[in-house]
Nucleic acid binder design. Structure first.
Lengths: 105, 105
DNA sequence: AACATGTGTCAGTAAATTCTTACATGTGTC
DNA sequence: GACACATGTAAGAATTTACTGACACATGTT
């Protein structure tokens, strides 16, 4: 079985951004990181990072996990998910066939 | 050798659109098609298709070729290019490292 | 000449994203 | 209590992207 057109679209949209590409790379290199720390590492504001992380998580590209630090602070750790999509013309043909009506625009 | 961060970004942005996904699929299924015909096949206006084709061609996903039809009309034929990109976390790490300064936002 | 079909482009609008600023909340420490 | 650091979210501005409609031009046919 393969990826659905809508899922592929969500994934591509999520990755089609310099910020989000850097977020993914930093996160992968770092292993895992929590929001405020990651914001400093990537060099963008926390609210902005939060927005991008939402998109990435919605696409299934990252996972999050709330944890309590030794000193009692709630930290939301993110890590990149495992994925592998072979982007080829044939995949697009197959994916486009399962595009929902909502994606008409 | 692998794909540059900027090129990957261009490619992902080009594919992250329902219309352009359908254009690619139709074009691949059809083999080749000229602008006006493709517009009818996909069901969008010609100026809009023209815009999308520009993005796709700029990303190297399609190629175009002007030809004269038997009755003397200039037809601009498009076809999908051959490409294969394995989308994985590791590729993103490698690609993000070569992101140009322009892509800072 | 008028029509049908092909090409491209530009101006203006509509819509979707992106980003900033500010707020609200919680916990441990000085 | 004030501070430092963590969380999330909401409103509005700024920017980008998408789309429509009209124009200009060319060729073969009626």
């Amino acid at each position: 079985m393969s990826i659905s057109g809508d899922d592929l679209l969500t994934m591509l949209s999520a990755l089609a951004s310099p910020h989000r590409l850097r977020i993914m790379a930093t996160l992968k290199a770092e292993g895992r990181s929590y929001v405020s720390q990651l914001a400093r590492q990537v060099g963008i504001s926390r609210p902005l990072l939060h927005l991008h992380l939402q998109k990435l998580e919605e696409a299934g590209l990252v996972t999050s996990q709330m944890e309590l630090s030794p000193d009692g602070k709630a930290l939301n750790f993110f890590a990149v998910a495992d994925f592998a999509v072979e982007l080829t013309p044939d995949l697009l043909v197959q994916a486009a066939a399962t595009l929902s009506a909502k994606s008409e625009s």
